[in-house]
Simulated scan of single mutants.
Amino acid sequence: MNGLSKLGKEGNLEAAAALGEFYFRQEHPLTYKLSFEWNEWAARRGDAGSQGRLATIYHEGLGVERNPQRAFAFWLLAAKQGHSGARAMSGKLRNGNFGAPGSHRSWLLDISELCRGKCGRQCGL
């Protein structure tokens, strides 16, 4: 784990994504913060798996304040790259079969317009 951590801290995208997944799979409140940090870093640099995990973190409020808008934005980014789980979640949203609070269809269109790039930095997330 130390070697992976070192690579992640040096800016290795694959290592950061692997660390984000490792901490995410721990499913423990103490590791949610680490999971969020690594997944956010990798997601904003275009890693589809990290984008999907970050969406789940935001949607479920795992160590962060629940934010359905950010969740759906990251699901859309991951879906755009072919991430199957993210495609399923964004498809549910588009079909109105998702229990999101409030009127989600209007901000889905806004998010779609913002998310034309491949990473969060290009989308302004």
Rank of each mutant, 00 (worst) to 15 (best):
M1D: 09
M1L: 12
G3P: 04
G3M: 10
S5L: 13
K6M: 13
L7I: 00
G8P: 01
E10T: 10
G11N: 10
N12D: 15
L13Q: 09
A15E: 07
A17Q: 05
A17L: 03
A18N: 14
A18R: 03
L19K: 03
G20I: 03
G20M: 03
E21R: 14
F22A: 03
Y23H: 11
F24K: 04
R25C: 11
R25N: 15
Q26L: 13
E27N: 12
E27D: 09
H28S: 13
H28Y: 06
P29S: 10
P29M: 06
L30C: 05
L30H: 08
T31I: 02
T31W: 06
T31N: 07
T31C: 08
Y32K: 05
Y32D: 13
K33P: 10
K33W: 07
L34H: 10
L34M: 12
N39H: 03
N39M: 04
E40F: 12
A48K: 04
Q51C: 04
Q51M: 08
Q51F: 06
G52C: 13
G52I: 03
A55H: 01
H59E: 14
E60R: 15
E60A: 13
E60L: 14
G61L: 07
L62R: 13
G63T: 10
V64E: 02
V64T: 15
R70L: 15
A73Y: 05
W75G: 02
L76P: 01
L76C: 03
L77Y: 05
A78H: 07
A78E: 03
A78M: 09
A78V: 10
K80I: 00
G82M: 07
H83I: 00
S84L: 12
S84D: 12
R87A: 14
R87K: 15
M89H: 08
S90Y: 08
S90P: 00
G91N: 13
L93F: 03
R94D: 08
N95H: 11
N97I: 08
N97K: 15
N97T: 13
N97Q: 15
G99D: 15
G99P: 11
G99Y: 02
A100W: 04
A100I: 12
A100C: 11
A100Q: 05
P101A: 12
S103Q: 13
H104W: 07
H104T: 11
R105P: 00
L108C: 00
D110M: 05
S112Q: 15
S112W: 05
E113T: 12
C115W: 01
R116A: 12
R116L: 12
G117I: 02
G117L: 02
K118I: 09
C119N: 15
G120H: 04
G120K: 01
G120M: 03
G124Q: 08
L125Y: 05
